[in-house]
């Protein structure tokens, strides 16, 4: 078992590395291609993984990962569980602003509402941002790519005066309290 650590390696000049973790390996491929094709002023390397831990063999050649994105497909229970298990292989330092969650299919009617709530609770307990994506539409994928890139730029230190921790303290997920929700309904 090896923990992925954010500060064990030196950063490279003008480079940012993002790791997309998705059990189903569907959306991550499209998203990775979109991110690579985006116009940007830093070199962005996208790395893909099904789950954590990452294989030890590549440890030497793996650059410093600036942002870990867990993609959760809400229609599949497995996707959520896999992300939950993978979380254990991240160094706690990552949770200081270098992890974010991307949820797809949140509007799908066949998803039990409890699943979204449990994802929210998990993400809120880790103080991470929770993004939603429309993976079926080109526009949705583009937006998701842009948003991830915006966060990546901050976490890899390319935005002056801002750090990942700072950003994630602003964007971190909250669980809407039930009482208010009921009042509102």
């Amino acid at each position: 078992m090896s923990l992925l650590k954010p500060f064990s390696k030196l950063p490279e000049l003008n480079t940012a590395n993002i790791l997309l973790v998705e059990n189903e390996e569907q959306f991550q491929q499209i998203l990775a291609e979109t991110i690579v094709l985006l116009k940007k002023n830093v070199n962005v390397n996208v790395r893909l993984a099904r789950s954590l831990p990452l294989p030890i063999e590549n440890e030497k050649f793996r650059p410093r990962i600036d942002l870990v994105v867990f993609i959760i497909n809400l229609t599949s229970e497995l996707s959520y569980q896999s992300a939950e298990v993978s979380l254990k292989f991240l160094d706690p330092d990552y949770f200081l602003g270098k992890v974010c969650f991307l949820v797809t299919n949140a509007r799908n009617a066949s998803v039990p509402p409890e699943r979204l709530i449990s994802v929210r609770k998990l993400v809120a307990s880790l103080h991470c941002p929770l993004l939603f994506a429309e993976d079926q539409m080109t526009d949705g994928v583009n937006t998701a790519a842009h948003r991830l890139l915006a966060i990546l730029k901050v976490t890899s230190g390319h935005v002056p005066m801002a750090t990942g921790l700072y950003l994630s303290s602003l964007t971190r997920c909250t669980v809407p309290s039930d009482i208010d929700q009921q009042n509102f309904d």
Partner: peptide, 8 residues
Amino acid sequence: AQNCVLPV
């Protein structure tokens, strides 16, 4: 279903 706004 609380999350099912804009049904897909």
